[in-house]
């Protein structure tokens, strides 16, 4: 028990003293997760809108595919991205392996199905009268799309919060395609894995605390939007 308490004490000291190595991992995590969530939203919102709004042949298959991808293991995504970005891979000449860009690509693939699935569900659950109301109020197709997304804003923010929660806490992709390079691609989760293996619990605990705070914030945001969505 003393051993754990000592680790916790040292962890707080690392955070309080602004330890460079600890904060480098936190900064890298924030950097890559922000890039990944933005890319996931940019691609996922229109795709999710299309999947939930329009009826087209193969729509059911697309939905099953997206839902299957929700439970895709992060190491498998890491493996696929690694295969594509490694020197022998089809995108090897881009030279992205073991970079933050590679992590962003992998994490975008992780967040994308979440954004698509929850956006599609949010759009499907909108009131059926919305479309005819917007049309009869004079909205053009672009305005219909934007207003529909705005009407589903609480569902979309829930999708974004869920995707961010999964992205910030993943370890498989960052480890495989980022390479866990100190000061460069080492993220909170890969640092926890490495430092714990080395027996340096204090840094692992410090980073774990940061991750817990982020998870708590994400859950608070989720709870808020779920409550708002139920109120409506």
């Amino acid at each position: 028990m003393d051993y754990l308490l000592e680790g916790l004490k040292k962890a707080f000291y690392l955070l309080y003293s602004l330890d460079a190595e600890t904060y480098s991992a936190i900064w890298t995590s924030f950097k890559v997760s922000t890039g990944s969530i933005l890319a996931s939203l940019l691609l996922g919102l229109p795709l999710g809108f299309g999947l939930g709004y329009y009826s087209f042949p193969g729509q059911r298959v697309c939905k099953v595919l997206v839902e299957t991808l929700l439970s895709f293991p992060t190491v498998v995504i890491g493996l696929l991205v690694y295969a594509f970005l490694s020197r022998q891979g089809p995108l090897g000449e881009w030279g992205l392996l073991f970079s933050t860009s590679a992590i962003i690509i992998g994490q975008t693939l992780l967040g994308l199905p979440i954004v698509i699935a929850f956006t599609a569900t949010g759009i499907e659950n909108l009131d059926k009268r919305l479309k005819s109301t917007l049309l009869t109020l004079g909205a053009n197709p672009r305005q219909v799309l934007l207003t529909t997304l705005w009407e589903a804003r609480f569902s979309l923010l829930t999708a974004a919060a869920m995707a961010y929660g999964r992205i910030i806490s993943e370890v498989g992709i960052s480890m495989l395609v980022g390479g866990n390079i100190k000061w460069y691609t080492r993220t909170i989760t890969t640092a926890i894995a490495l430092e714990t293996n080395k027996g340096k619990f204090e840094m692992g605990i410090a980073l774990g605390l940061v991750l817990l705070v982020i998870a708590l914030l994400v859950n608070l945001v989720l709870a808020f939007f779920r409550r708002r969505a139920h109120e409506l």
Binding site: D127, R129, T133, T136, L232
Partner: peptide
């Protein structure tokens, strides 16, 4: 044309 004609349905939908 929809900018010149508008319909109020029996149970209208209000935007959020």
């Amino acid at each position: 044309l929809r900018k010149e004609v508008t319909l109020l349905e029996q149970t209208p939908y209000l935007l959020k």
